[in-house]
C-alpha cells in the first residue's frame, strides 16, 4: 500500500513555451506539464500517473495574468490562479461566471495554487471551469515549438480527461469573447459532499434585447457526463423568446439532453439523479444569468 510517495521522475523548468513543448516532444508523451499541481501531484502520489519527467511551467514567461483587449475580449494566461480570477475586477464585472466557478473550487489552498490552464487541460469530468469555458464561448489558445492555434471550447473537451490538445502542445491561455450589451452569466453547482467537486455544475450565458427577448444563449454542463458539454437543445428553446419561468423550465427539461445514455453513475449519484439535477440546475443557472442580464 502506498505511503504517498511518487515514482522517481526528472524535473525541468524551462523559461519559454518553445522549450516546454520541446521537452514534451523529447519524452514522447511520457512527460507532464506542471501548473498548480493540484490534479497532477495527487495522481502521482497515488501512482495513477507516473511520468518520466515533469516540465514545470512556473518560470515560463507570459503565461500569467488577465488582460482586457480593445475589442472587449479578455485574455487570461494559462498560469493564472483561481485566486487571481476571483479577485479580478475585470472578471467580476465582465464575466462573473468565471469568478463564481473559481470560488466554488475546493478550498483556499487549492485556489491559491490551481490554474485555469491546468483545470481546462486536465479536463476533469467534474471540474468547474470547463462548464464556464463552454458557456462563455472561450477560445482556448495553445502553442507547440513550431505553431500556435485556437480551439473553440465546445470542441475542446473530447472525453474523460481528454482534450483536443496535441501531446506536444502547451495551453497558453484563453480568450473570453466580448459579451454583448444585455448579457449575463452565472455558474451553479450541486457539490459532492465529500470532494466538493460537481455532481452537476451548470454555467449559462444569455443576452436579452431591450424588449426582454433572448437573442443568444449558451449553456455548459459539467459533472454529469464524461466531459463538459454544451447543451444546444436547451439553448434553442430560449433564443427568440422572453425568459419567463415557463420558458426557462421548458428549456431546462432539455438541459443535458446531449448526454442521454452517457450520464455518470457512481457511488455519489446515479445516472438518473444526475439527469434530473442537470435539468434543475440548468433552470437555476439560466434564471440567474437572465436576472443578471436584465439587472
Amino acid at each position: 500500500m502506498t505511503t504517498g510517495t511518487t515514482d522517481p521522475f526528472a524535473y525541468h523548468a524551462p523559461t519559454t513555451v518553445r522549450e516546454a513543448s520541446q521537452a514534451l516532444s523529447r519524452y514522447r508523451g511520457d512527460a507532464k506539464l506542471l501548473a498548480g499541481g493540484h490534479s497532477l501531484i495527487p495522481m502521482m502520489k497515488l501512482r495513477i500517473a507516473s511520468p518520466q519527467a515533469i516540465v514545470d511551467l512556473r518560470n515560463v514567461e507570459g503565461l500569467r495574468g488577465i488582460t482586457e483587449n480593445d475589442d472587449g475580449s479578455i485574455t487570461i494566461g494559462a498560469m493564472t490562479t483561481y485566486y487571481e480570477l476571483i479577485t479580478s475586477d475585470v472578471i467580476n464585472s465582465k464575466a462573473c461566471a468565471i469568478a463564481e466557478a473559481a470560488s466554488e473550487v475546493a478550498d483556499t489552498q487549492v485556489r491559491n495554487w490551481g490554474t485555469i490552464g491546468g483545470s481546462l487541460a486536465h479536463a476533469d469530468p467534474a471540474g468547474d471551469l470547463p462548464a464556464v469555458a463552454v458557456a462563455l464561448g472561450m477560445e482556448i489558445n495553445s502553442a507547440s515549438a513550431r505553431s500556435s492555434r485556437s480551439i473553440a471550447s465546445d470542441r475542446f473537451f473530447r472525453g474523460y480527461l481528454e482534450t483536443a490538445l496535441r501531446p506536444n502542445e502547451v495551453l497558453t491561455g484563453v480568450t473570453v469573447p466580448a459579451q454583448d450589451e444585455g448579457s449575463g452569466c452565472a455558474y451553479v453547482k450541486l457539490a459532492n459532499k465529500a470532494s466538493h467537486y460537481a455532481i452537476v455544475g451548470v454555467a449559462a450565458s444569455v443576452t436579452v434585447d431591450g424588449g426582454g427577448v433572448c437573442t443568444a444563449a449558451r449553456i455548459g454542463i459539467t459533472g454529469a457526463g464524461p466531459h463538459a458539454v454544451r447543451s444546444r437543445r436547451a439553448e434553442r428553446i430560449l433564443v427568440g423568446k422572453e425568459l419567463t419561468e415557463n420558458v426557462i423550465d421548458r428549456a431546462a427539461q432539455r438541459g443535458g439532453a446531449e448526454l442521454a445514455g452517457m450520464f455518470n453513475d457512481d457511488v455519489h449519484a446515479s445516472a438518473e439523479y444526475r439527469e434530473a439535477m442537470t435539468q434543475v440546475y440548468t433552470a437555476r443557472a439560466v434564471t440567474r444569468a437572465a436576472a443578471c442580464a436584465m439587472g
Binding site: N192, K193, A194, S195, Y197, V267, H268
Partner: peptide, 11 residues
C-alpha cells in the same frame, strides 16, 4: 471499499 478516501467519504 468504494469510499476509500476523503474525496469519496464525506467528513
Amino acid at each position: 471499499l468504494l469510499t476509500g478516501s476523503m474525496m469519496d467519504y464525506a467528513v
